[in-house]
Simulated assay, not measured.
Amino acid sequence: MTYLTLKYLHIGCVVLSGTGFFLRGVWMLRESPWLQKKVVRVLPHIVDTVLLASAIAMAVISAQYPFAADWLTAKLIALLVYIGCGAMALKRGRSKQQRALFLVAALVAFAYIVSVASTRNPLGFLAWFA
């Protein structure tokens, strides 16, 4: 598989993953029964696995790795923040208000990750304020 094919696969999974997370967050806030559907519980894991696998493959092909490329390090750290906030938003938050705050924080982290990837600058959209 070529780098360009992996890149488009990765971008497609980013769109699916982000859209799916946002939708599940809205459903969580509305207490929608859609959250209990099997496809809603399984599909995000499949998409995120392909997303991670394509990211690793692109890193290997391009020989750019976290802790060697500063923008990839920033993406990796932000990914961990996104995962933590996302888990709190969808499962572990104690109240709906707390879940909503974590949902917003996760979406900001997601936007930051996309901006870092787009600019290959570890500041991402924060560079506008620097």
Rank of each mutant, 00 (worst) to 15 (best):
Met1Gly: 07
Thr2Lys: 06
Tyr3Pro: 09
Tyr3Glu: 13
Thr5Ala: 05
Thr5Trp: 09
Tyr8Asp: 02
His10Gly: 03
His10Thr: 09
His10Glu: 07
Ile11Val: 11
Gly12Tyr: 04
Gly12Lys: 03
Val15Pro: 01
Gly18Asn: 02
Thr19Val: 14
Gly20Gln: 00
Phe21Val: 03
Phe21Pro: 00
Gly25Phe: 01
Trp27Cys: 10
Trp27Gln: 11
Met28Pro: 09
Met28Glu: 15
Leu29Arg: 09
Glu31Gly: 12
Glu31Gln: 15
Glu31Asn: 13
Pro33Cys: 10
Trp34Lys: 15
Trp34Tyr: 15
Leu35Phe: 11
Leu35Gly: 05
Lys38Tyr: 12
Val39Thr: 15
Arg41Pro: 10
Leu43Glu: 12
Leu43Phe: 14
Pro44Met: 06
Asp48Ile: 08
Asp48Trp: 10
Leu51Ser: 02
Leu51Val: 08
Ser54Glu: 02
Ser54Phe: 00
Ala55Leu: 09
Ala57Glu: 10
Ala59Glu: 11
Ala59Gln: 14
Val60Tyr: 14
Ala63Cys: 11
Ala63Gln: 15
Gln64Phe: 14
Pro66His: 13
Phe67Glu: 11
Ala69Asp: 15
Ala69Leu: 13
Trp71His: 08
Leu72Val: 11
Thr73Val: 12
Thr73Tyr: 07
Leu76Ala: 09
Ala78Ile: 05
Leu79Gly: 02
Leu80Phe: 06
Val81Pro: 01
Val81Ile: 02
Val81Trp: 04
Tyr82Asp: 05
Gly84Gln: 00
Gly84Glu: 01
Cys85Pro: 03
Cys85Phe: 08
Gly86Phe: 03
Ala87Trp: 13
Met88Asn: 11
Ala89Arg: 10
Leu90Pro: 05
Lys91Gln: 10
Lys91Trp: 13
Arg92Phe: 14
Ser95Cys: 04
Lys96Trp: 11
Lys96Ser: 12
Gln97Met: 05
Gln97Pro: 04
Gln97Tyr: 08
Gln98Leu: 01
Arg99Gln: 07
Arg99Trp: 02
Leu101Asn: 01
Leu103Asp: 03
Val104His: 01
Ala105Asn: 03
Ala106Trp: 03
Ala106Ser: 06
Val108His: 02
Tyr112Gln: 03
Val114Ile: 04
Ser115Cys: 03
Ala117His: 07
Ser118Arg: 11
Ser118Pro: 02
Ser118Ala: 05
Arg120Lys: 07
Asn121Asp: 15
Asn121Val: 02
Pro122Leu: 04
Pro122Gly: 07
Leu123Met: 13
Gly124Glu: 02
Gly124Ala: 04
Phe125Gly: 04
Phe125Tyr: 06
Ala127Ile: 15
Trp128Gly: 13
Phe129Leu: 15
Phe129Ile: 13
